[in-house]
Write a protein that binds this DNA or RNA. Structure first.
Lengths: 110, 110
DNA sequence: TCAAGATATATCGGCTTACGATATATTGAG
DNA sequence: CTCAATATATCGTAAGCCGATATATCTTGA
């Protein structure tokens, strides 16, 4: 799973959101690091819908502008949970190695 | 940074390794989940070298077979540290949201 | 001696994916 | 009327992973 897909799923946890709203939500929960481009957003959204991880919740017309809301499916929630655990494990594997590394270590582990 | 690059950098922490040895090391520290293909390995390795994250350590000829050892640079270590922290933060952001979520899903809990 | 498998590096084409640019449409500010 | 913001949608390009393939040596086994 790509980072963009990961954050889009995360943004949909708890409440359905529409495309443009997802962009802002992702920017917020990533601390501003991930700035989703619209060209990326709809492509990822379609792919996630095709995989059954998200689905169309409803369509609203607010002030003449169409808003298409997407919702996280049970399958999507499970996939996100698994992905979060996988990334946590990866990060920990790297951190353990980095912290356990003794430069030019002639001594043992104390 | 891709997951493959992340694991290759992690495999090089502590000791230089040669290409084929990296494949085995990555498989081990990822719990068997990441099986690096040779077609991927050398492409990623060249890219990491081009970015200054790894560099050639030495070349050995053991039993007629060439072994090209790569070493993690200071820049590579810093990049890996930052990436590990980033992934840990991403995983936590998703987990926090998921734990606060009531999985009543389509039932409409509000 | 010959064949097969493991080790080891290298390259190519195909496929998926992210991104920037662009298009369309409405509302509100100037 | 023009400009900016909101909002969805599509296209071409570039990047990156993967499977397949090629080359070469050593070991195992019939």
């Amino acid at each position: 799973m790509t980072e963009q897909a990961f954050f889009i799923l995360t943004a949909l946890v708890g409440a359905p959101r529409h495309g443009y709203g997802i962009v802002g939500e992702v920017a917020g929960l990533s601390g501003g690091r991930v700035r989703l481009k619209v060209g990326t957003l709809y492509g990822v959204l379609d792919r996630l819908a095709g995989d059954g991880l998200v689905e169309l919740d409803r369509e609203e017309v607010e002030q003449g502008r169409l808003r298409r809301y997407y919702r996280l499916t049970d399958s999507g929630g499970a996939a996100l949970t698994a992905e979060a655990q996988r990334q946590a494990a990866n990060a920990r594997a790297a951190s353990d190695r980095l912290h356990g590394w003794r430069p030019a270590g002639q001594g043992g582990v104390s």
